[in-house]
């Protein structure tokens, strides 16, 4: 299956990429995406370390969330609006 990954704020700056397409095995989860991305290099390991949040199709989700073909996944630091 095919998904899109977006990054924001520090996660975007540290990874150096803000919009990526990934081909994944069926039943892949957010955790699977993290494994794929951290395999790209230490900059991605750093970008996804610590208390990073994840979203699937514009809703916050946990790392065990199962993905579907066409999903948009996003990684970003804890939010600081207000």
């Amino acid at each position: 299956m095919h998904i899109t990954v977006k990054t924001f704020a520090q996660t975007r700056e540290l990874s150096g990429e803000d919009n990526i397409s990934l081909d994944l095995e069926p039943d892949a989860t957010i955790d699977t995406v993290i494994k794929h991305l951290t395999a790209r290099g230490s900059h991605w390991e750093l970008a996804l370390s610590g208390s990073i949040l994840s979203a699937r199709n514009h809703q916050l989700c946990d790392k065990q969330t199962v993905l579907n073909d066409g999903d948009e996944v996003a990684f970003f630091p804890p939010v600081t609006g207000g």
């Binding site: 924001f8 704020a9 520090q10 979203a55 916050l60 996003a74 970003f76 630091p77 939010v79 600081t80 609006g81 207000g82």
Partner: peptide
């Protein structure tokens, strides 16, 4: 808002 809205 400071917890759940994606703003940085």
């Amino acid at each position: 808002l400071k917890q759940s809205v994606p703003l940085w």
